[in-house]
Design a protein around this nucleic acid. Structure first.
Length: 109
DNA sequence: GATATGACCGCTG
DNA sequence: CCAGCGGCCATAT
């Protein structure tokens, strides 16, 4: 309510627009929002994404494709499973072919 | 109201 | 090459 997460709102909007079988990084989203150093805020937005089921946070990883937030999902390989389920090749805590499936909102949007 | 923390990123030493 | 620090936004105590 109120001003709310002006930032969060944009983050959610972008994340929800991530195509199927694609992933992006926190920094890219933050950069798209106009604050390339606010990657932390993006990460926190993902944390709050638990109350926003429409936020495919599993498609959002760090800049190296590492599933840093897999902790926050189910606590297991749920995040990995979701990505693999979409056709994304994922190893233990790391996305393979990250450069190929990487979706940059700055360029796509 | 202020302090501390967090799913990050980039630069400097 | 590896380690440390700062910066941004919001939430929690």
């Amino acid at each position: 309510m109120k001003k709310t997460s002006n930032f969060f709102d944009k983050v959610y909007d972008v994340v929800k627009q991530i195509p199927f079988g694609r992933v992006t990084s926190y920094g890219s989203i933050a950069k798209f929002l106009g604050s390339p150093q606010s990657s932390r805020a993006v990460g926190y937005a993902m944390n709050a994404s638990h109350k926003n089921p429409d936020i495919p946070a599993h498609r959002v990883v760090n800049r190296i494709g590492l599933l840093t937030g897999k902790h926050h999902f189910d606590g297991s390989n749920l995040m990995k499973d979701l990505l693999v389920n979409e056709g994304v090749i994922v190893k233990i805590n790391q996305v393979q072919d990250f450069e190929k499936i990487f979706w940059d909102p700055v360029e796509e949007l």
